[in-house]
Amino acid sequence: MIGQTRPAGRSFRDRAVLAARADGRYVVVQARADDTPALEAVQRACFPDLSEDEIATEAHFRSHQAHFPEGQLAVLDVETGELVASSSDLRMNVDFAHYAHPYLQETGNNLFTTHDPHGEWLYGADIGVHPGCRGQGLATLLYGARHDLIRRLNLRGHVAGAMPKGYGRVAADLSIEQYVMAVIRGELADPVLSVQLRRGYGVWGVIPDYLEDDSCRNYGVFIVWRNREYRP
């Protein structure tokens, strides 16, 4: 029951519901300006190892909403009204031969000034579920809403720099390429990348110096989900 979702079409506190867990406890809505304090709080709770320069603050979230409001999603707890998870996306065109860019460069210093309203791909800049609410299917809700947006806009798919947060524990023994291949083969489980692979994403390559986070030794893994319903 928890892992299933209900279709959109209703409202919660005068906000359009984009997706909902089957039991109705959690709903996905478009983030708005008065959500930004809670968005920053979730961000800080989710990424305690991320450098201060790369943490999304209230000002960043307001900029995201100004550039691409449809791509900014939040999960609300219907019982308490609290914001407990979010995702942030922008549109871009992707040069798959030159995909390895630092996060801050790709996102315009986390302000989404690089958003291209005609971009053919959705770029997943961020997704986070408050540690106190993990295991409730909230990331699944957000990914479903993101994929719905991709289909609605007729985009080619979804790309992101996944953080291989388990790599730091084995970095002394494995190169990042060896680690990623072991995760792909199912020999190792990564708390982020393994979940992405189960959702149908494929690995395109490794991004050195993607961001400052020691848990993944600053690496990102460029992942791709293709929209099978895309119409040229």
Rank of each mutant, 00 (worst) to 15 (best):
Q4D: 14
T5D: 11
T5Y: 11
R10H: 11
S11Y: 08
S11A: 15
D14G: 08
A22Q: 13
Y26T: 04
Y26N: 03
V28H: 04
D35V: 03
T36Y: 02
P37T: 09
A38H: 07
C46M: 10
P48W: 12
L50I: 14
D53P: 01
E54W: 02
T57D: 01
A59V: 01
A59P: 00
H60N: 15
S63Y: 01
Q65N: 09
A66S: 13
F68V: 06
P69T: 12
L76Y: 05
D77N: 13
V78A: 08
E79T: 14
T80E: 11
V84P: 02
A85F: 10
D89S: 13
M92G: 03
F96T: 02
A97M: 12
Y99M: 10
Y99P: 03
A100M: 05
L104P: 00
F112T: 03
F112C: 10
T113F: 08
T113C: 04
G124A: 08
D126W: 07
L142A: 10
R146D: 06
R151Q: 15
L155N: 08
H158W: 07
A162P: 01
P164Y: 06
P164S: 12
G166F: 05
G168E: 08
G168I: 06
A171E: 09
A171M: 07
D173Q: 15
S175L: 12
I176W: 06
A189P: 02
D190V: 08
V195S: 11
R198S: 15
R198A: 14
R199C: 07
G200P: 05
V206L: 13
E212C: 07
E212P: 00
D213M: 14
C216F: 03
N218L: 12
G220Q: 03
R228D: 13
E229C: 09
P232N: 14
